[in-house]
Design a protein around this nucleic acid. Sequence first.
DNA 1: CATTGATTTGAACGCTCGTTCAGTTAGGCT
DNA 2: AGCCTAACTGAACGAGCGTTCAAATCAATG
Lengths: 199, 199
Amino acid sequence: MARTQGSHRQITAPKMRKAAMRLFAQHGYAAVSMRQIAADIGVQVGTLYNHTPDKQTLLFDLMRDHMALLLSKIEDRPEQDPATRLDDFTRFHIRFHLQRPDAVFIAYMELRNLTPENFATIEDMRRNYENHVERIIQDGVDLGIFRVGDTKIATLAVIAMLTGVTTWFRPEGRLGLDTIEAEYCAMVKRALGAQADGP
Amino acid sequence: MARTQGSHRQITAPKMRKAAMRLFAQHGYAAVSMRQIAADIGVQVGTLYNHTPDKQTLLFDLMRDHMALLLSKIEDRPEQDPATRLDDFTRFHIRFHLQRPDAVFIAYMELRNLTPENFATIEDMRRNYENHVERIIQDGVDLGIFRVGDTKIATLAVIAMLTGVTTWFRPEGRLGLDTIEAEYCAMVKRALGAQADGP
DNA sequence: CATTGATTTGAACGCTCGTTCAGTTAGGCT
DNA sequence: AGCCTAACTGAACGAGCGTTCAAATCAATG
């Protein structure tokens, strides 16, 4: 048997994906050339095509892997009370998104650069994620803990509010992560008509 | 005297801007060529350069005009109570943004395609807009009507939540504009610790 | 009606794009 | 040690990019 597939001389594929992630997030998918990605990791452009069939698939893989990781990490404990589950979600969402700003940026900005089939796949994953949140809110409404007019609107409002953190948060900024999380936990619960324990 | 500057045979400049607006929003600035814009309005590509110095300026003008209109339309009545002013802002923001989804999309997605100087200009305008909102929230906090931990976070959270509407709203959808506005008015006020009059 | 100059055309400029591929290199296998 | 083959190079392909400009067009003016 010859070399197994995983035993690359150097691990070019992950390097390519990391470079693409950073460059796509910084300049946008359409504005980044395969040559730029290649130059960034110090190989010729032809090399990239040993590790991805084409540029579109490279983008799609980044987005799909990001969404898959997001879905795999979310955990819900339906036996706990909805307010706690909502707090857990709030902290999870903020932390997860702030840890990988490039991937988040790409997942939100480059949807229009996906082929229709690839777009449908990512969109399904996103809806799956939204359903997690809506379930918590719906349970809270059923138990009389939350009061919202429409659970779908509330779901999308909460997610939009939380994801917005990624557009302004800077690690060296005025406020620490814990402060921000607590602040958002309070705002989210209050927005849903629950009694907040925060400030 | 010959023809005055304004008496074009046809009004190509506005047509160019409208086409660019739609195409940039749909495919992204970098993915749209000047030739596509020209073809869309039925002229040769060279014609465009009679109406814009270059592609970058075309993008910048769209964004600056959008932000200028946004800033010109916002109106605040500091003598009224903050809850009312916040309701007014909520309805204004939702309505303004839903009326021009393409411009909103561009203003949020194409910032990275601006030159540093142009970016700084747009960023100033955005901060100006945010300050309007923060002023309302701060006044509400001072009067004991709102309770928030940090007015800047609250400001950005509110704006993110409201702007999120543009990503999912469809005119033919399940919920009417009035319903959505009322829903968001209630959520925004509750998020800021005010007593909501909505559901 | 002739003039004038804003407007448009159509072609061209040099450059970069995504992708392909024959040939070279080099590391793990027998 | 020598083979095998994945990985990489370097050059090439046709196509499209933003921008420029001389020549043609055309509507309002004098």
